[in-house]
Amino acid sequence: MTFVTMGELLSLLKTEEFTRKAQVQLNRIRASDLVIIDDLMYMAMDQREATLFFHLINHLYERSSIILTSNKSPDQWGELLGDEGVAMAILDRILHRAEVVHMNEASYRMKHRQSMFVSESVQN
């Protein structure tokens, strides 16, 4: 099993041809039975990043189980990837034989912190 954030993954993909560390980490990801990618599509990708991500997903497709977390729905991915064709190719591989779990609840990080946002007056 391998866990990686999307930011870390993009950094590895962009530096793989230059650094041994990125090569080793990506080889571990490619060899994993389960790959968990957190915060997918939290920010837009440029064309090169989208293509590198597609190649990784294409390699993992039918070799590994993949768990993705994202706060964006698949219909927003084309805009974030800047290329509808690449987005469709990635989604085609990701959604084939997929289970999609929608969690439409408030952030679990903020669940117990809502009291911080309640305005209270301080009286002397």
Rank of each mutant, 00 (worst) to 15 (best):
T2P: 01
F3M: 06
V4G: 06
T5D: 12
T5G: 08
M6G: 04
M6S: 15
L10R: 11
L10T: 06
S11G: 08
L12V: 04
L12M: 10
L13F: 14
L13N: 07
K14V: 08
K14E: 07
T15N: 13
T15Y: 12
E16D: 10
E16R: 11
E16N: 12
E17G: 15
E17T: 07
F18L: 14
A22E: 03
V24W: 15
Q25W: 14
N27Y: 10
R28Y: 08
R28Q: 11
R28S: 09
I29R: 01
I29S: 00
R30V: 09
A31G: 13
D33H: 12
L34V: 15
L34D: 10
V35D: 00
V35E: 00
I36P: 01
I37E: 01
I37G: 01
D39Q: 09
L40C: 06
Y42H: 09
Y42F: 14
M43Q: 13
M43R: 14
M45W: 02
R48L: 14
R48H: 11
E49W: 04
E49K: 03
A50S: 11
A50P: 01
T51K: 13
L52C: 15
F53P: 00
F54Q: 00
F54Y: 05
H55R: 14
H55A: 04
L56W: 02
L56F: 08
I57W: 01
I57V: 10
I57C: 04
N58M: 10
H59N: 12
L60Y: 03
R63H: 10
R63Q: 07
S64A: 15
S65H: 08
I66S: 01
I66M: 06
I67Q: 06
N71Q: 10
N71E: 15
N71M: 11
K72I: 05
S73A: 08
S73R: 13
P74T: 01
W77Q: 02
G78D: 06
G78E: 10
E79A: 12
E79I: 05
E79V: 13
L80M: 08
L81P: 00
L81Y: 00
G82K: 05
D83Y: 01
E84K: 11
E84G: 09
G85V: 08
V86C: 08
V86M: 14
V86E: 03
A87W: 01
M88V: 13
M88Y: 15
M88C: 06
I90L: 05
L91A: 15
L91S: 05
L91F: 04
D92Y: 02
R93I: 04
I94D: 00
I94F: 00
I94S: 01
L95V: 09
L95Q: 11
L95F: 05
H96G: 07
R97D: 15
R97E: 11
A98Y: 03
E99F: 15
E99R: 14
E99L: 14
V100H: 03
V100I: 07
H102K: 13
H102D: 09
H102A: 09
M103H: 07
E105P: 02
S107G: 02
S107R: 08
M110Y: 03
K111T: 01
H112F: 07
R113M: 12
R113E: 12
Q114C: 06
Q114V: 07
Q114H: 10
S115C: 09
V118K: 14
S119I: 15
E120L: 13
E120D: 15
S121F: 07
Q123F: 09
Q123C: 13
N124M: 09
